[in-house]
Design a protein around this nucleic acid. Structure first.
Lengths: 206, 206
DNA sequence: GAACTAATTGCACATCGTGCAGTCACTTTG
DNA sequence: CAAAGTGACTGCACGATGTGCAATTAGTTC
């Protein structure tokens, strides 16, 4: 018997979490999240409505579902990229991972967004939290202060834009284009314009 | 007496609309929109709660407040830019206008967003609708189809990113940086990477 | 086994957002 | 001008959302 690093309690909690997310994802993809009540999701996962709200702040979050702890995870991943890597390239690697994590959920997520495009906006809301964390890392990497230099906020926002546009395009193409590949291509295209500005040593910006 | 093109009824409606928006903006900037109820806003504007919902779908929309008709306005503005203008440059001109329209409301809007950062997310929920309209125009201008080419969605998303980053940076700088100027600079920086791809005549993309 | 902790639950409550029908002021038509 | 029509505002009812609180139950720690 292999020892599980997680206790039974934690495992059950994760199971509930997963059941709720899966139910929300399935129902949202089928009928559009606006036509699904929290009660339906909770019932499908065989828990109470109150428990749902212990796991997610809203039904939209259960579908978009970027947990708070993943913000820290993403920040650490960005911080551990080689220091000489261009900021946009580092962002490409880190954000690109999002396409591969729990990749079985993405098709359902895409269909749910198609059924209710307002979800794309909600997803954007989640990204704001990500960006705040990522901007801090970019500031450290480049030595630039967001209060005086637009670069950190700009490069992060542009990376998010590429992520978002890739999702939209891949969805519009009906499966012909791959989101991850489209994302990489978009970043490649933008990289020349977004090299970090010259530092105090006088290195060229372009 | 100068003839008013609007009838008395329409004038009263606009007055109510403005009173509601002003009240929402003021209360949201003072206490954060989460701590303000729709009832308070309606009372401040001296109308019923039900009337509020006849003007805005939610209290957040009353603050962010990009009306639906402005989507069409923006689309038309983009469509009437010179056809030989680069797409990103055309977007710069059109979106830059947003900073100048009803400019007296922007300081309050900024304070409301500071009091409740989730509003920034809501703002970009509105932008999704804008982007959908703008992407269509970009498709016509470039002759590219979003279903097969990522360019239209990408260039539009990047323009939005620049807009967003400019707002964030200008706010962080505490008034030192001007949002509109920062936006122009950001677009200028990105323009080289986002020239439209080569068309059927074989014009160079770079 | 006893004390502790955390997940789940029901309940109550304020708030949200919408459908519906009625009133009243303004507008249009004859 | 008078009648018919239209649209803004209103109150009411109702389902749904999201949160605080206290109780229960199951898992964990000592």
């Amino acid at each position: 018997m292999v020892a599980d690093p997680l206790g039974r309690r934690e495992r059950k909690r994760l199971a509930t979490h997963h059941a709720l997310r899966t139910a929300a994802l399935r129902l949202g993809a089928e009928r559009g999240i606006r036509d699904v009540t929290v009660e339906e999701i909770a019932t499908a996962a065989d828990v109470s409505v109150r428990t749902f709200y212990d796991h997610f702040p809203s039904k939209e979050d259960a579908i978009i579902g970027f947990d708070a702890w993943r913000v820290g995870q993403l920040r650490d991943a960005l911080a551990s990229r080689p220091i000489d890597e261009a900021p946009l390239e580092a962002l490409r690697v880190v954000m690109g991972q999002l396409f591969h994590e729990s990749s079985d959920e993405w098709p359902l997520r895409m269909r749910a967004i198609k059924a209710d495009p307002a979800l794309m906006g909600r997803m954007f809301v989640s990204f704001i939290a990500y960006e705040r964390a990522l901007v801090e890392v970019i500031e450290q990497r480049t030595g630039l202060d967001s209060d005086t230099d637009p670069y950190p906020a700009l490069v992060t926002a542009v990376a998010t834009a590429a992520f978002r546009a890739s999702m939209t395009t891949a969805r519009a193409s009906g499966g012909v284009l791959d989101p991850a590949a489209t994302f990489d291509a978009a970043i490649a295209r933008l990289s020349s314009a977004l090299r970090p500005p010259a530092d105090e040593d006088g290195n060229a910006a372009c």
